[in-house]
Computed example of a mutant assay.
Amino acid sequence: MGGRKNRDGISLAAFAREMGVTPNAVRQRVQRGSLAGSIFPDGSVDAVAARVQWFANSNPNQARRKPTPKTSKLFQAGEEAADTSEYDLKVERMQVDLEAAKINLERLKETTVDKEEARRAIRSLMRVFRAAMLNFANRYASDIAAVVEADPVQLAGTLEEHMRLALGELAKTRAPMDAGAFGESA
């Protein structure tokens, strides 16, 4: 058993297996300096630092290939299947992290709005609209009465009555995104 050294990190081949690439791909990145600072003096790899640098220097638009499953006795015994499922979990975790980063980027660009925030804004707008409509008769009845030559008090009463009927019908209508009924207050 004298062939195994005490290393500070993992071997290039082990890191390549973790990343789902060939050992040659890892060697190329080491030669290019893409993994600078994540290689220990003994030649082993600091897996955490190397993984961060690997993804920082990768093109996220390129599709990653999964390693082909081996058909050895280990694979048949189920030991390799455990490694493959761990790899799949890592890939899924990276996809979730990528999706979260995309959502955060959209929020930073202000292209998305929180659903609950939109609901509150709709409810608030509905309350303002309802209040404006209930005050319409009192504010404009005298001006309208002067134009149509009618009694301002009678016109104000008629407008308010019909405005309340219209708002009552509108209150039965559902708002977008299930913000609630028009007449509800939150």
Rank of each mutant, 00 (worst) to 15 (best):
T111P: 03
T112I: 15
V91Y: 02
V96N: 08
A77K: 04
A82V: 14
Q95E: 14
A100I: 05
Q76W: 05
K73Q: 14
E86D: 14
D114R: 09
E106K: 11
R119E: 13
K66C: 02
T68I: 08
D88S: 08
L98K: 06
K73T: 14
A118S: 06
T68K: 10
E116F: 09
T84Y: 12
E79G: 01
E80R: 10
E110G: 03
S72C: 08
E92G: 06
K90E: 07
E92F: 08
T112D: 08
D88H: 08
Q95G: 07
T71N: 09
E110I: 00
E116G: 09
E106R: 13
Y87A: 04
F75Q: 05
L89M: 09
K73H: 13
L108H: 10
S85E: 15
T84D: 06
T68R: 09
A81L: 06
A101T: 01
E92H: 09
R119L: 15
K109W: 03
T84L: 10
R65F: 01
V113H: 08
R119D: 10
E80V: 08
T71M: 04
A100K: 12
K70Y: 00
D88V: 00
E106D: 13
E116R: 13
T68P: 00
D83Y: 04
M94C: 02
R107K: 15
E110Y: 01
D97N: 12
L105M: 05
D88E: 11
S85M: 15
S72K: 01
R107Y: 05
A77S: 11
L98Q: 07
N104T: 07
A100T: 02
E117A: 13
K115Y: 12
E79M: 08
K102Y: 10
P69Q: 05
D88Y: 07
Q76P: 00
V113A: 11
L108F: 09
